[in-house]
């Protein structure tokens, strides 16, 4: 993966590859840790797009195989859902 500084990795939160690399250089070792520092994955799609990209960058930089990188926590709802829809079913 050739580094392009302005390449957007997380589209929802507009986080660039360089920001993610910076977080990993500062000690982030899994996708959740990167998320907490950079907001990558905190947006509307909740990491559906950037999860594997972030995991690959971590793997590349730390030398850990992808299988050993701790997956991030999946939280409900799987897709965005209006609050009133949930509230109506109380």
């Amino acid at each position: 993966m050739n580094s392009k500084k302005d390449l957007i990795i997380c589209r929802c939160e507009e986080v660039t590859e360089e920001e993610i690399r910076e977080a990993i250089r500062n000690g982030a070792r899994d996708v959740d840790a990167v998320k907490r520092v950079t907001r990558a994955g905190m947006g509307l799609c909740q990491q559906h797009t950037c999860y594997s990209l972030v995991a690959k960058i971590i793997s590349e930089m730390t030398g850990k195989p992808l299988s050993e990188i701790v997956p991030s926590t999946e939280r409900p709802p799987v897709r965005p859902i209006p609050a009133k829809t949930l509230a109506a079913n109380r």
């Binding site: 905190m42 909740q46 409900p76 709802p77 965005p80 209006p82 609050a83 009133k84 949930l86 509230a87």
Partner: peptide, 23 residues
């Protein structure tokens, strides 16, 4: 999730159309 969303819908009805992305 329903409890949390219901709380918001009751308090600030205008916000009830917002999408919930994470709980």
């Amino acid at each position: 999730m329903m409890e949390c969303a219901g709380y918001m819908a009751d308090l600030v009805p205008e916000l009830a159309s917002l999408n919930i992305i994470r709980c």
